[in-house]
């Protein structure tokens, strides 16, 4: 944590291979704990759903607003477990979370309500739902995640390994998700505690998971020379994943007139595990490759590009 990644005596590493494997295991274990925590959160509110009927409108709104924040806090708590060998400063993670939250809060109504007026057209056709989800919700949310990490954490010396990119981006994604959850709760004047808790968890899972993917790209750009297309590709890929995530969830979660909210949750859990697994694998491979190249450089070997094998495949 204390060493700067751009060392004068060698190339930047952005993490070491031995540490990478350890971080990898901790990462996956922490994600599992997080998912368990979220399931417990849903189960508690499901069991307590009868309380909702006893609350007046203000009480329900207050409980719902607390619900909107809990998944984000659970995630943030998990990061400290995940990153306990080299924990990121709490203020920095919180700063990224709040920046993501404030940016989304400032832009939510002007962007989604006024400029794009999403309610009027998003769900009219399946293709408008998918494209709108990717191009508006996805791109705007990922741009905010990128901006939050870039403004608050990118140039900070504490950002000293690739996984930090994932952590800060997930924190920013949770800020974005918190605003979406607030809006959801306020729009309906409080929510049913059982159904609402599922919806809120699904939102948090989606934004956190996909922001993690963008965080991988940000982490790479922090430590390595990248092409001009690298980060835009990361934003586009993450936005596409986010749009697809919510599209799949809404398309598969209802049968006829009845909405199956548990399907929301199960699919959300599955997709988040898939995305987080991919991010975890990418971080590990990137760290391994970096260590390999650094070792070659240290032993005096020179990096050479591999010849492209074309002729043999064509049978020429």
């Amino acid at each position: 944590m204390q060493s700067h990644p751009f060392r004068a005596d060698g190339p930047p590493t952005g993490g070491t291979i031995g540490k990478g494997a350890r971080v990898q295991r901790t990462f996956l274990r922490s994600i599992s704990y997080e998912l368990m925590g979220l399931l417990i959160f849903v189960a508690i509110f499901h069991l307590l759903s009868a309380i909702g009927a006893a609350l007046d409108e203000t009480g329900l709104l207050l409980v719902s607003l607390v619900m909107a924040v809990v998944p984000a806090l659970l995630w943030l708590a998990v990061f400290y477990r995940m990153d306990r060998a080299e924990p990121e400063p709490k203020q920095l993670v919180l700063g990224v979370y709040l920046t993501g939250l404030l940016l989304m809060a400032a832009l939510y109504q002007p962007l989604f309500g006024v400029l794009f007026a999403m309610e009027g057209w998003l769900r009219v056709y399946w293709w408008s739902h998918l494209l709108g989800g990717v191009l508006v919700t996805g791109m705007a949310s990922m741009a905010i995640v990128y901006a939050a990490v870039r403004i608050v954490a990118f140039n900070n010396p504490e950002f000293d390994e690739r996984l930090d990119g994932v952590i800060y981006a997930v924190a920013a994604g949770l800020g974005v998700a918190t605003v979406h959850n607030f809006v959801y709760v306020v729009r309906y004047g409080g929510v049913d505690l059982d159904v609402g808790s599922i919806r809120i968890v699904v939102n948090a899972l989606g934004y956190a998971g996909v922001a993690g993917m963008l965080g991988y790209f940000i982490g790479q750009a922090r430590f390595e020379k990248t092409s001009v297309f690298y980060l835009p590709a990361g934003v586009v890929l993450s936005a596409a994943l986010l749009g697809l995530y919510f599209f799949l969830i809404e398309q598969t979660a209802s049968t006829g007139l009845r909405a199956e909210f548990w399907r929301h949750l199960l699919l959300g859990l599955f997709l988040t595990l898939l995305i987080m697994g991919a991010v975890s694998w990418l971080v590990r491979r990137a760290n391994e490759e970096t260590a390999r190249v650094a070792q070659l450089a240290a032993t005096g070997d020179r990096w050479e590009p591999k010849p492209v094998e074309i002729a043999s495949d064509r049978g020429e």
């Binding site: 190339p11 870039r150 790479q220 750009a221 980060l231 970096t290 190249v293 990096w303």
Partner: peptide, 23 residues
Amino acid sequence: LIKPSPTNAPPSPGEPVRNDLAV
């Protein structure tokens, strides 16, 4: 995707701003 710089070259000073503009 895994290794954007095959030589571990660090980003140049102007690269973050270039990335901002590209994004």
